[in-house]
């Protein structure tokens, strides 16, 4: 038993962390819950002396918004498309990186660069790549295209309007998926490469003695032994995917969509920000809680599915 006279010392040492957690984590969580269940709550209105009834009005309103369903659809689509693609690509790249000796360090650095680069900056570069660089001159469109369209033209294809006014939803989503996958790769490669390098080499020697074909080594040995890392990468990938926001801003700017259809690519987090901007903290809180519930359910399902396949 610790001398009770020394207890104040323990609390003193813990206090910086506890105070920060209380102010910036515990209180906001509590406050979000409170605001979500106060009908039509808004900060400015609250300062103005208005009182709010307790209820689930905010949740009903949020679900009734057409924009909200659009945001939910965009977010879900991005998640479902990018997490599997980026995980499979990261696995293949990590396995390839792990199996080569020369230039391994150099390639590792190259693959890791996106991780240390600002995602808004990357978004702007992607926007330029997919852009139609020339602007309208009267009714005539100057055909200076971004590099992607240049490549398409080089191979004899028709340039595609990826992100500019008049572009299609499919084209917009394709750009977002490519961008998000590319952006998500380095972290996943890093985790999987670390996992690969910690697998005992003797398993591979044993497989070699038995004449195991490469594909079977991958599916029967490498992937099962890597499964804890794969599970981690998939779960965090889904959690990150549901919080997707800055990548849309990076490419489409704050309009969250092509010039003629603002908000078309808005996401759940974007919806929360929009509500906050309009002094509708109650709606924002309700939307945040819905997002939280979705992430929780998806993670639980993930856990359930993965548990059977992960070998710790």
């Amino acid at each position: 038993m610790v001398d009770s006279k020394k207890h104040w010392k323990a609390w003193l040492y813990l206090s910086p962390a506890i105070i920060l957690l209380l102010v910036f984590t515990v209180w906001p969580i509590f406050n979000t819950l409170r605001m979500a269940f106060l009908n039509d709550y808004g900060n400015m209105a609250a300062i103005g002396g208005q009182t709010f009834g307790f209820g689930i009005q905010n949740f009903i309103k949020v679900i009734e918004y057409k924009e909200f369903l659009q945001c939910l659809q965009n977010t879900a689509l991005l998640c479902v498309a990018t997490v599997p693609i980026s995980t499979v690509l990261a696995l293949l790249i990590a396995v390839a990186l792990n199996s080569i000796k020369p230039l391994q360090k150099t390639l590792q650095t190259i693959f890791f660069l996106p991780y240390v680069t600002n995602s808004i900056a990357i978004g702007m570069v992607f926007a330029a790549m997919f852009n139609i660089v020339g602007l309208k001159q009267g009714s005539h469109m100057a055909d200076t295209w971004g590099i992607i369209n240049n490549v398409i033209q080089f191979f004899g294809g028709e340039p595609i309007n990826w992100i500019n006014a008049g572009s299609s939803y499919v084209a917009n989503m394709a750009v977002m998926i490519i961008y998000i996958v590319w952006n998500a790769l380095p972290f996943k490669i890093l985790i999987l490469l670390g996992g690969l390098q910690s697998i005992n080499k003797q398993y591979y020697d044993a497989a070699k003695v038995d004449g195991t074909p490469k594909r079977r080594v991958l599916t029967r040995i490498t992937i099962p032994l890597l499964s804890p890392m794969l599970a981690y990468v998939i779960i965090t990938g889904f959690i990150g995917g549901f919080k997707e926001y800055s990548s849309i801003i990076g490419i489409f700017g704050e309009k969250m969509g092509p010039a003629d259809d603002a908000g078309r690519l808005n996401t759940m987090v974007g919806f929360v920000y929009d509500a906050l901007e309009r002094d509708r903290q109650g709606r924002a809180s309700a939307a945040a809680l819905i997002l939280f519930a979705i992430i929780l359910i998806v993670t639980l399902i993930n856990n359930k599915v993965i548990k059977k396949r992960v070998h710790y």
């Binding site: 398993y203 195991t212 029967r220």
Partner: peptide, 15 residues
């Protein structure tokens, strides 16, 4: 794999 050997590793290397 073409030599037809069986090898038992020091730490067994069981999957």
């Amino acid at each position: 794999e073409n030599r037809g050997i069986g090898l038992v590793f020091q730490n067994y290397a069981l999957y």
